[in-house]
Amino acid sequence: MKNSLKSLRAGKGLSQQALGDLLDVSRQSVNAIETGRYDPSLPLAFKIARLFDCAIEDIFTDAPDP
């Protein structure tokens, strides 16, 4: 699953650690989500969406590569 978490985080000027603290997850978890190595659970995806004030599908997409 692809996502735009990295750009959203950069837009808010947050480090991976700072975002992790806001989401109650480790910096490594933020990194794994951003790089597509880990797909978050639905509760965590909702938490991320709420933090950036947008819908889950605005951040995560299952669209295949073009």
């Binding site: 997850v25 480790s26 978890s29 794994a32």
Partner: peptide, 8 residues
């Protein structure tokens, strides 16, 4: 108690 990625 840890986060879901570390748990995995």
């Amino acid at each position: 108690e840890t986060d879901e990625f570390i748990r995995k």
